[in-house]
């Protein structure tokens, strides 16, 4: 056979079809069947009629929303001050902020748990507060990095022009810098919002119980209920798709995935 560069992609194509596309199809199949293999919509109806699961959905939206807002409020000023400071070695500074990404999250959350336990006593008394603290602690670097990347690439002469034309410093920031940094904000938000709806292990570690969407999959998994778990996974997948479609137009950097930010 003649050597062709195209042929090099064949193993990966097979891999993607077998292990990326096929699991999703299986997921759909399991979500709409019962344990006898018969077609059913009871898993779907069950989700939307059970107050517990609906409550979990709302609760995880609330946690994800508050986490994202807090991350943004902490990350934007940090990234902005870093990017606009006159420091000579900004690359090293930003490294300090994103270094925690390379330390295993479970060890970092252990550290956080020890400290919070000293301050609060029993962490289960304030589940919402501690969930948000844990999530922010885990995801903050993923918000700082994309915002920093966007703000540091802004042309400083734009703000100067606004100032020369009579805008106050605050107005120049509000009307020039902030709108131009929206791509960074959006990619940061998408890296924080979705994980904080699903990453139940952070809460599990902090106070041994969890009430977000991801944990429903976990509990179905422990009960060997593949059909119920598939339905939850499918609903999450739907939310992820909607969210991605909504944010896609707003981001420039298409590769700014969770790991795309790592290196």
């Amino acid at each position: 056979m003649k050597f062709s560069r195209k042929a090099l992609g064949i193993p990966y194509a097979i891999f993607l079809v077998l292990f990326v596309a096929a699991p999703l199809l299986v997921l759909i199949y399991f979500a709409f069947t019962n344990s006898n293999g018969e077609f059913t919509v009871s898993n779907l109806l069950g989700f939307f009629t059970d107050p517990n699961t609906l409550g979990t959905l709302c609760y995880s939206f609330a946690i994800a929303f508050v986490t994202t807002v807090v991350c943004l409020l902490l990350a934007y000023p940090t990234a902005y001050f870093l990017a606009t400071s006159g420091l000579s070695n900004k690359g090293a500074m930003i490294m300090i902020f994103i270094m925690p990404m390379w330390i295993n999250f479970s060890l970092r959350i252990t550290a956080l748990k020890e400290i919070l336990s000293i301050i609060e006593g029993n962490l289960a008394f304030y589940p919402f507060l501690n969930s948000v603290i844990g999530m922010v602690y885990d995801f903050l670097p993923f918000m700082i990095l994309p915002i920093y990347n966007t703000v540091s690439k802004l042309d400083p002469s734009l703000t100067e022009a606004a100032r020369d034309l009579g805008a106050t410093e605050w107005n120049a920031f509000l009307k020039v810098t902030l709108p131009l940094s929206i791509p960074g904000i959006v990619s940061g938000v998408s890296m924080v919002f979705l994980p904080s709806m699903t990453n139940y292990v952070v809460l599990d570690m902090l106070y041994n119980s969890t009430y977000i969407m991801g944990s429903l999959i976990g509990s179905y998994f422990s009960a060997y209920n593949w059909h119920g778990g598939s339905m939850i996974a499918l609903i999450l997948l739907g939310i992820i798709c909607l969210f991605t479609l909504a944010t896609d137009d707003l981001t420039e950097e298409e590769n700014a995935g969770r790991g795309g930010a790592l290196l």
Binding site: F19, L24, L194, P195, T198, N199, F221, W226, A233, I240
Partner: peptide
């Protein structure tokens, strides 16, 4: 873009 929980669960299934 997928959540790790969903990737892991569907791979397991």
């Amino acid at each position: 873009i997928n959540a790790d929980v969903v990737s892991g669960f569907s791979a397991c299934i």
